[in-house]
Design a protein around this nucleic acid. Structure first.
Lengths: 121, 121
DNA sequence: GTAACATTTAGTTGCTTAGCTAATTATAGT
DNA sequence: ACTATAATTAGCTAAGCAACTAAATGTTAC
């Protein structure tokens, strides 16, 4: 039962849902790209990703200084829920905006993104 | 998107999940029966039911002094999630205990339950 | 080695929420 | 009308959590 509540808790935050929905469209993104997308502090993004990871929804892969996140393979058990989210998210304007914004973000490489975040440009 | 997070927030509490799972097995229960089942204050149960109602997951029917709750008809949109919960809940010992306890509770009529709660017997 | 840098962890703050008791509302029975 | 009673609402407290800044960790490049 704790599994269930933990999963729902992980999904009951708008920013975390945005992460999940984004990962349904783009296989893999690094932390700085989420930071850019969500417009909140990197540390906060890191915590959100940690919550999703603890709930078994997301997995990470380290590549040098970057850490890439993707939907967890072991999240298969809650696939129906993820499918439902995807379906419902279709009609959310926030999600559409995210997708539009993300295509711009992905036009730059991660290094540029991070530099932009540092310099605050 | 708020719909989504609201739904997940409503489902991310153990006691509320127990209510939902119970309503999948028993069409309709009154507030005092949930109070007996969950073993928490009636006021708290009322608030939980309110949260589920606001999320559109539960509907209520007034019959005299009693208010009976059931899964909402309009909850059809999140049917996949409810189905998933039901499936996952099968293996939860808490749920099995609840079901066992509930059959005892239902052996009495609501009036008896409520009296028991008042007198604390 | 050390300087730059991507991410996480620590520590703080303000808001939300689950729980309680007490008060209020609405109904039933006398 | 009055009392009892099922449920909700109000008001409180303690715990949990999302956000931030600053410090720590681990990695790349000189």
């Amino acid at each position: 039962m704790n599994n269930l509540t933990q999963t729902f808790k992980a999904l009951s935050d708008q920013n975390r849902l945005r992460i999940i929905v984004t990962l349904m469209e783009y296989d893999e993104l690094c932390a700085c790209q989420f930071t850019e997308l969500l417009g909140i502090a990197g540390a906060t993004v890191s915590r959100h990703l940690g919550v999703l990871h603890n709930a078994g929804l997301v997995q990470s892969r380290k590549d040098g200084r970057w850490i890439f996140y993707s939907l967890s393979n072991t999240a298969a058990s809650c696939r129906p829920v993820l499918d439902w989210i995807r379906e419902e998210a279709r009609s959310c304007p926030e999600v559409k905006e995210d997708m539009a914004r993300l295509s711009k973000i992905l036009a730059c490489n991660p290094e540029e993104i991070c530099r932009k975040q540092r310099t605050g440009a």
